[in-house]
Design a protein around this nucleic acid. Structure first.
Lengths: 149, 149
DNA sequence: TGACTCATGTCAGCATACTGACATACTCTT
DNA sequence: AAGAGTATGTCAGTATGCTGACATGAGTCA
């Protein structure tokens, strides 16, 4: 039959690892009252202040419609701020408020701990190889996607 | 600040790769009228006939409630079969029908092509290392999860 | 200048997956 | 033998993300 062998399939292992990471992150973020996308959005804004809704969506791997809903609730809760009118074009640059930065701090530490746990069994060299392998996978998939149009 | 550096964070790269794979699989499965979970369920049943609802859920990384809903629709469409009553306990062993097997064939080929694309830039050794790294990540995360209870 | 293309923000409706809850059946311990 | 603990199948309600659609602003090209 020559099927996708679950035990050796890199796709399946990738999904398994991603799922395990997702669960672990959910577990540490839930007590803080945050979801993963919620945290991702704050973390992105912390590292790249002024990101637009669409850019945040791409960075968090959701649609811009989903990110828009999230941003509205974050804005309502005073964690992020957006200008009334777009400075140029339609793009609304978003920034963290002091409250948002504060909330991010504890979450960021918790997530870092999860990531440290995840890579505990890997040497520095292993980690570098894994990074390169993952980057290669992403590039190959994206090239193929845009090529097939 | 010592934050989670997006560009080097293995967690972020893992999510990115998983997301890219997810999108690519969706793209090839959609024309076949299947979702990823739908395909995953059939693939699991093909390799491990007689799996229960809960086992399928774990294998596809969803809750057993979600898998139950899916199984009901697959059963309605005649792709899988489950006995009326449990042969033992409450466990209902599920099997593929001929129609299910037929539908799986084209999907399996498409998914295999996506996976081949994904690993096109990796040598055999790279792939083996990546497999081991991913397995290590999963093990570390799971140990930590069950330990923290 | 005007038509075309593209990216963005946003609204509405839908699909999918999740949490909570309950009854049932097996297993282990005492 | 009986109770506790665990796993399963399933129902209901909720949440989160997605697709479809539309208007708006910017860039491109004839």
């Amino acid at each position: 039959m020559s099927q996708v062998e679950l035990n050796t399939s890199l796709g399946y292992l990738l999904k398994m690892a991603s799922s395990a990471l997702h669960s672990a992150m959910e577990a540490v973020l839930r007590p803080l009252g945050m979801t993963i996308t919620h945290y991702s959005c704050l973390e992105l804004l912390s590292q790249r202040p002024g990101l637009s809704n669409s850019e945040l969506a791409r960075g968090a791997f959701v649609t811009r419609q989903s990110m828009n809903v999230l941003l509205q609730s974050l804005e309502r809760d005073g964690l992020v701020a957006r200008p009334e009118r777009a400075p140029s074009g339609r793009v609304l640059p978003t920034t963290l408020t002091a409250k948002g930065r504060r909330q991010l701090e504890s979450a960021s530490a918790a997530v870092r701990a999860v990531e440290d746990t995840m890579i505990a069994g890997l040497t520095e060299a292993d980690q570098n190889r894994m990074r390169e392998a993952l980057r290669s996978c992403v590039t190959s998939l994206r090239e193929d996607m845009s090529a097939g149009m």
